[in-house]
Design a protein around this nucleic acid. Structure first.
Ligand SMILES: [Mn+2]
Ligand SMILES: [Mn+2]
Ligand SMILES: [Mn+2]
Ligand SMILES: [Mn+2]
Lengths: 218, 218
DNA sequence: TGTCTGATTTTGGTCAATCAAAACCCCCGC
DNA sequence: GCGGGGGTTTTGATTGACCAAAATCAGACA
């Protein structure tokens, strides 16, 4: 029912909402995230609200309705299941699948998604470690520690890589900094804004805080 | 580069052109095939011509350029490879895949198509027996006989089922009238416009000429 | 050759999605 | 309490895709 554009807005708004802990999302932020001019975001959000996907308050921001939430989760699910498919079945690298998933998520019907999901053994995280909403719309993003908060000098496993920039993912792949990998935090220096890791037989590296906060472990 | 809409027009024009033996295609026909009003077809075809995909002659019709042809073949290839994928890998029935392929054909990138194609063992016909253009754009639709022209009382194999209507495909499936199946033409009566077939241990049926002409054999 | 008629094109309008730039308004600091 | 300023909304336009209906034209037929 929603157009491809609206689907993208819904997913985006949902994600931004998540990221800010359920806060109402400003038009500036929507515009930024969608790569459009603020006026466009305003107009689109208003029409999305019109259709009952969201509540919009002028000069405050937007928040998805129950219905909007369900829709957003369905789209997110499609995106992430497809990412698993691209890696697990088609053999792509986890660093270069985002774009394709971004287009396919709007073309895959429920029945096709079901089969793909089965073919992938009903995964519950995608190749970046991001949780996959269930077919019924359940979605628990159980809170994890980032490399900035986790215990030191203990073997821990990478859970998610939040940052999506291809360059960074490439780098992470190279260093074996991938979801599921075991590492150890050697040292953490808040003043220097740096975290030093010991990678599984790949020496050690030091990351800045910005990046360290975008990698979660468990 | 072309929008989804334009992709659909290109594929459609190509197919109509094929079907009429390379003739120029009238606006009425394009409109009909695309399910739009004639004025819309005129406008769209003009803009498609503008972009160099086709030649348009007012009150004559449209014919694809070399470039348009290549594009159309690429889309047709995507469509048909995806159909194979839906049947062979995802396990769908050949009678109910068209709609999904229709949407996916616009969302699958070259690299994804390549992998899917490999996964399916580089087929050269789709589940309806329709030939798949090669990745380089070769497309030989070697002429076949229809049930109306083929030799009588000889074992022959179904090659293609041209008719795409779900109801008919369902019926064909039921009767084992599927690409690859062996049958025998028992009787042909041009006056009664009827062809009687012997199906592999499924008795015999009689088809009208309209339908018989839409099934080819080899 | 002139006339009709059905196919085609044009015209005028809508809707979705977008931008540029002007208008607006809310809150923050003096 | 009063401005400013920055984020937000409006306004005016554009582009793509479409429809309804009026205008046009080309070929068939008399
Ligand atoms: Mn998308
Ligand atoms: Mn992901
Ligand atoms: Mn299509
Ligand atoms: Mn087919």
């Amino acid at each position: 029912m929603p157009s491809i554009t609206v689907e993208n807005y819904l997913k985006r708004i949902f994600l931004e909402q998540q990221e800010s802990g359920g806060e109402i999302v400003s038009m500036g932020r929507v515009a930024q995230a969608m790569g459009v001019v603020p006026g466009t975001a305003t107009t689109m959000v208003k029409s999305i609200a019109e259709s009952g996907w969201a509540h919009y308050e002028a000069r405050k921001g937007v928040r998805l309705t129950e219905k909007g939430n369900r829709m957003a989760l369905a789209i997110l699910r499609r995106h992430r299941v497809i990412e698993v498919f691209l890696v697990k079945i088609l053999g792509f690298d986890w660093t270069e699948i985002h774009e394709d998933a971004e287009r396919l998520e709007h073309a895959v019907s429920d029945r096709v998604l079901k089969r793909i999901d089965d073919l992938c053994d009903n995964p519950n995280v995608d190749p970046h470690g991001d949780p996959i909403p269930s077919a019924t719309g359940e979605f628990r993003s159980r809170p994890q520690m980032t490399l900035f908060e986790c215990p030191i000098d203990q073997p821990i496993r990478i859970a998610r890589v939040l940052k999506q920039e291809p360059d960074f993912l490439q780098y992470a792949e190279e260093k074996g900094l991938v979801p599921g990998a075991w590492i150890r935090v050697i040292e953490r220096n808040p003043i220097a804004d740096a975290v030093t890791l010991h990678l599984q037989n790949r020496g050690q590296i030091t990351l800045g805080g910005k990046v360290a906060a975008d990698i979660t472990v468990e």
